[in-house]
Design a protein around this nucleic acid. Sequence first.
DNA 1: ACAAAATGATACAATTGTAGTATCATAATA
DNA 2: TATTATGATACTACAATTGTATCATTTTGT
Lengths: 145, 145
Amino acid sequence: MKLITRNTDYAVRALCCIAEQKQEVISADQLVKSLKMPRPFLRKILQTLNKEGLLNSSMGKGGGFALAVSPEKITLTDVMEIFQGPTRLNECKFRKSDCPYINDCFLKKKIDEIEKEVIVKLKAITIASIIKKEVNVDDKEVRGL
Amino acid sequence: MKLITRNTDYAVRALCCIAEQKQEVISADQLVKSLKMPRPFLRKILQTLNKEGLLNSSMGKGGGFALAVSPEKITLTDVMEIFQGPTRLNECKFRKSDCPYINDCFLKKKIDEIEKEVIVKLKAITIASIIKKEVNVDDKEVRGL
DNA sequence: ACAAAATGATACAATTGTAGTATCATAATA
DNA sequence: TATTATGATACTACAATTGTATCATTTTGT
């Protein structure tokens, strides 16, 4: 079971990389070098992030990508929802007519509770929080286990 | 994203059904009638639960399945691990050599924390707790929304 | 104008996991 | 020994994930 797919994982790393960038824009090729992921796949991901409004892009020579939203405002769930759809831990498999507990399924209730808490925690993770922590660690040259 | 697959879902319902049973054993055919799921699929699931030690089976005429473990001791994670492997919300996709934050990845840390809490909550859900709640609701004839 | 460097759009392919089927062997009972 | 049950195992179908490949379009510099 995966909470986060490769799409999302790549996208988050790309967003972090773009957010940390000093230049105005960064091209897909530059990102490929930093992130070591397949170029066509990353390009598709960047195009999606652009369409979804998280990135701005500029075409042509010297073009590339920049954040369209401040890193504090991009949460992990935002990215997950783009690439994985709504965050649902729980999708009941039973047709309504078949389930004797349709109106009061304990299992569903419990999973729904867990889901709510997970989403709250995922929303607390932002691009800003990720790069902040990592840069700090870098600065102090204290690398955890 | 799914926390629980159909395999697991069917298995949990089958275990509940078996646990609620008055008879000593219940056959796959009887379970199919109660649970309205594909017979060959349920049979495979029951065989797996048997191999994994959650059920006892008896072959031949009058045979069937019974719980091998008390319903209080069967947790949702037990069943999930049988059908879905270890409960991992987080599988880092990056090769170690490629990841600049391999030793201190904030994203991984955060997801690991969430994962731990989810597992604690999943372990708290047992077959006993599921049937207890549902039977209670039934008894009172109070059906929630 | 034109070549180069970038993204945009889109269709296709490979791999994997989930879900489900089919068949035959084996054991227990009446 | 026929019937009723599970055991073992191989196969198929489908969907999601994980990519690849191609060509069009836009911008910039000469």
